[in-house]
Design a protein around this nucleic acid. Structure first.
Length: 460
RNA sequence: GGCCGGGUGGCAGAGUGGUUAUGCAGCGGACUGCAAAUCCGUGUACGUCGGUUCGAUUCCGGCCUCGGCCUCCA
């Protein structure tokens, strides 16, 4: 099988051929650490985690780099508002980010470089750009000279004229061309700054990714990912800086995930439809959130809805129920059962199709009668789900989970007691009492299942 | 205004030039003390108008409509 990926640069699905098949490199833009991750931030993290898992399966070594932006004007603003030091904010937010994405089943990247630890590399790169005539100094700023870059606009597919025509913002007077962007800007004493040949200052937004991707992946590397909104200006500028400074091609495949909306509207704080990952983790398990994010192809816009989250949870309930019913069976090697799922993922990460196959494998497990077939079906389901980073929990734990906060329901022990009382009533053929107990449980959100091996329960 | 991506059955959401997506919901049946779970069966789907074609939801064009980007928002 061959991996195909949609490349934003060519606007076509291309066969993926790594620069070095022994070592695939991928860089994805990570969070700016000034506030908790929201659900829109989570989408690229989960999508590229699936790609990372797939690449690891297809190639012997994968180097995945996802940066942490810890120098940024939003961070500075937050620090002023809260009267809290920048270091405290970025340190805490980074930790919270790690916790949040870990609960979404996201593997840590191989490198997670922080911008502030690579300022020297950024300065060196800016110096090279100046030396080559691709950047100039003006009023304490260093600016990238956009007209000096031949193919500027190739990634976002727009011409300089279009950009100027569409410019909404006043052009700073020190720019020689309206499209020029900042590589380095001066910092007053109260803001973070580093000594540089151009005085004390801080880097522009784009240069950190150019410097850090080069440090960990080299001048030219395989895959660069991020949200679609980063195509312009961020990735276009990153590309320009890197190509000009290094005199070599930059990323070979550009992947961008679509935007996320909430209940059909753009997510925004003013509409009150703004959710952090933590808000959602308080009401649903990480895997349910993860499945919701993967239920729409990464390239499409994703409409986040309460209904969607509910149906993802129901889908996982069904899968975990099938696994619980097969808990006494030892999962067996899946052999060729993985082929359809791999084929779906290798076709530009078609996760919705892969999930459809997961449903089919669940049905196969439910239908399996003899032990051997069952063992293979269980193995196939677990292996297939594993490719997507799903079904990694103990079924019993999943089915009995309840939200941490605000649960006023029955404890496991209370439920077990009631279930036993009902078993006794049934044994005595006192069905009125048995049904009364079941109603009490149902009203508390507990579903009962009477099977040949006894009664099991789960939280709905 | 410029550029870009969508509009699929009740809902979500893949895909395809002619043949079953898948899940949920609904309906019928099996199983069950009754249920639940599970299994079996069941649906007039492809925004609109034209064009190409033996045949289009799938290709091409117009239109309607939704959304995104256009200098620091994943």
């Amino acid at each position: 099988m061959t991996l195909f990926l949609y490349n934003t640069m060519s606007r076509t699905k291309e066969a993926f051929t790594p620069l070095d098949p022994a070592r695939v490199g991928m860089y994805v833009c990570g969070p700016t650490v000034y506030d908790r991750a929201h659900i829109g931030n989570a989408r690229p993290v989960v999508v590229f985690d699936v790609l990372y898992r797939l690449l690891k399966r297809l190639y012997p070594q994968v180097t995945y780099v996802r940066n942490i932006t810890d120098v940024d004007d939003k961070i500075n603003a937050r620090s002023q508002e809260r009267g809290e030091s920048i270091g405290v904010i970025t340190e805490r937010t980074t930790q919270l980010f790690h916790q949040d994405v870990a609960e979404l089943g996201v593997l840590p990247p191989d490198h997670e470089p922080r911008a502030t630890a690579h300022i020297d590399l950024m300065i060196a790169m800016i110096e090279r750009l100046i030396a080559k005539g691709n950047a100039y100094v003006a009023e304490g700023h260093v600016l990238f000279n956009v007209p000096s870059m031949q193919d500027y606009g190739a990634l976002s597919h727009r011409t300089l004229d279009e950009m100027i025509a569409g410019a909404r913002v006043e052009v700073a007077p020190y720019k020689t061309h309206p499209a020029d962007f900042v590589l380095w800007k001066p910092s007053p004493a109260e803001l973070p700054g580093w000594d540089s040949p151009w005085g004390r200052g801080r880097p522009g937004w784009h240069i950190e990714c150019s410097a850090m991707s080069r440090r960990y992946l080299g001048d030219t590397f395989d895959i660069h990912g991020g949200g679609q909104d980063l195509v312009f200006p961020h990735h276009e500028n990153e590309l320009a800086q890197s190509v000009c400074a290094n005199g070599a091609p930059f990323a070979r495949y550009w992947l961008h995930n679509g935007y996320l909306m909430v209940e059909g509207e753009k997510m925004s704080k003013s509409l009150g439809n703004f959710f952090t990952v933590r808000d959602l983790l308080d009401q649903a398990q990480g895997e349910a959130i993860r499945l919701t994010l993967l239920s729409t192809h990464y390239h499409q816009p994703l409409d986040w809805t309460a209904e969607g989250l509910k149906s993802a949870k129901a889908a996982l309930d069904r899968m975990y129920l099938a696994l619980r019913n097969a808990q006494d069976v030892q999962a067996q090697d899946p052999d060729q059962a993985l082929t359809p799922i791999l084929a779906a993922l290798e076709d530009d990460l078609n996760t919705p199709l892969a999930i459809a196959h997961l449903h089919e494998l669940t049905g196969a497990l439910n239908k399996a009668e003899d032990e051997d077939v069952k063992a293979k079906a269980k193995g196939a389901l677990l292996a297939a789900a594993g490719l997507l980073g799903l079904l990694l929990q103990d079924p019993e734990e999943w089915l009995k989970w309840q939200p941490q906060a605000g649960n006023s329901g029955l404890s496991d022990a209370e439920i077990d007691g009631l279930v036993q009382a009902r078993i006794d009533a049934r044994a005595a053929r006192n069905f009125a009492e048995a049904d009364r107990i079941r109603t009490v449980l149902t009203e508390s959100g507990i579903a009962l299942e009477d099977g040949p091996k006894g009664t099991s329960w789960r939280r709905g």
